[in-house]
Design a protein around this nucleic acid. Structure first.
Lengths: 191, 191
DNA sequence: ACCTGAACACCGTTCAAGT
DNA sequence: ACCTGAACACCGTTCAAGT
């Protein structure tokens, strides 16, 4: 029966997970799905649009957290970031894919909307909450990318383990520093 | 006379500045320099290697600041970050190019070395100074990329002006938050 | 509605052979 | 030492035509 957009997205997630973004080409997906390349363009308008779907699917496993009490917002933010990291860290080049999706169609990434609402809920004014989310997101995606490059660059198994731990450590350090900074920048509030 | 590696790098910087990374192909550079594509590969080993040279040249205009007194380190860090931003903000896709160079050959980007030494000079232990630099760098490059996408996405001239100001504002906000956070995370020291 | 076949206009990299 | 010519193995996107 006919190919669906969902199947196409799943195939794309599969190739990304196994081989990375460099191998994720429309032609390769067509081969994998036993159709001609042109067929894919009946289901999606462009490769970029497909990548937005992929990004949404990658974040689809992150459960929506309950809106916390304002004084609990920082902890909730930390927990959400950790969830996002867990969902992305094993997928090669996931940071790049999320980045692209977030600039192309921010509404498609619901968990990043929750992040913004938590920041506002903590008492940060709207515009600055926007900046603060950017800060947290750049850190999250940057530290995921750095961690994956570190794994790719070294071959020694023992160095791999160290990269594993220090990636998590660097991530947590950054989250701590940013949340501390936010609490000083907005002293009247909880964050 | 013969093509030089320097000329090749300059041509690459030129295409990047005028047309962006998507148009910066080896074949285009060959056309621009009136040689066959293969000729370029006598001067550089790969396109990636060329991009490292491009990144180094982009940061080449940033002057080396004097090592500040420890209690002046935060200001010096802020000033250096502003210099880096100024050097990159007008060059399309510069964040991506710097990112690539920094993971491929970090020693090639001297100003990022100065940043690390300033952080250590402020009394942050070596490993955490590494994390802290990552944090600052992700923010710098992330806010440059966001600013350039904002410019690209909107056509209205008045929205352009707003993007101009708010890009700078978002950048300064982030630097402030991170430096504040660092000062709390490392209380015995100046930062 | 959904797909094929084929084309268009590109890529990065390699390498024998020329000067 | 430096470059040409030509090939290899790819890309994303479009679109008339088929079923």
């Amino acid at each position: 029966m006919a190919l669906t957009r969902e199947q196409l997205t799943d195939a794309a997630v599969g190739v990304l997970s196994e081989f990375g973004l460099a191998d994720l080409s429309m032609r390769r997906l067509a081969r994998e799905l036993d159709v001609q390349v042109g067929a894919l363009y009946w289901h999606v308008k462009s490769k970029q649009e497909l990548l937005v779907d992929v990004a949404a699917k990658l974040l689809g496993s992150v459960p929506e957290p309950a809106l916390p009490a304002p004084e609990m917002a920082p902890m909730a933010i930390g927990a959400l970031l950790q969830q996002l990291r867990s969902a992305l860290i094993t997928i090669p080049d996931s940071a790049e894919v999320i980045q692209l999706a977030q600039t192309m169609r921010p509404e498609a990434l619901a968990p990043l909307g929750w992040l913004l609402s938590f920041l506002e809920h903590a008492g940060i004014p709207a515009e600055q909450a926007f900046y603060a989310r950017h800060l947290l997101l750049n850190h999250l995606l940057g530290s995921i990318a750095a961690h994956q490059e570190a794994r790719a660059l070294v071959g020694e198994p023992e160095a791999q383990e160290h990269a594993q731990e220090s990636g998590q450590e660097a991530f947590e350090y950054g989250v701590r520093v940013i949340l501390l900074g936010l609490s000083l920048e907005h002293p009247k509030n909880a964050v």
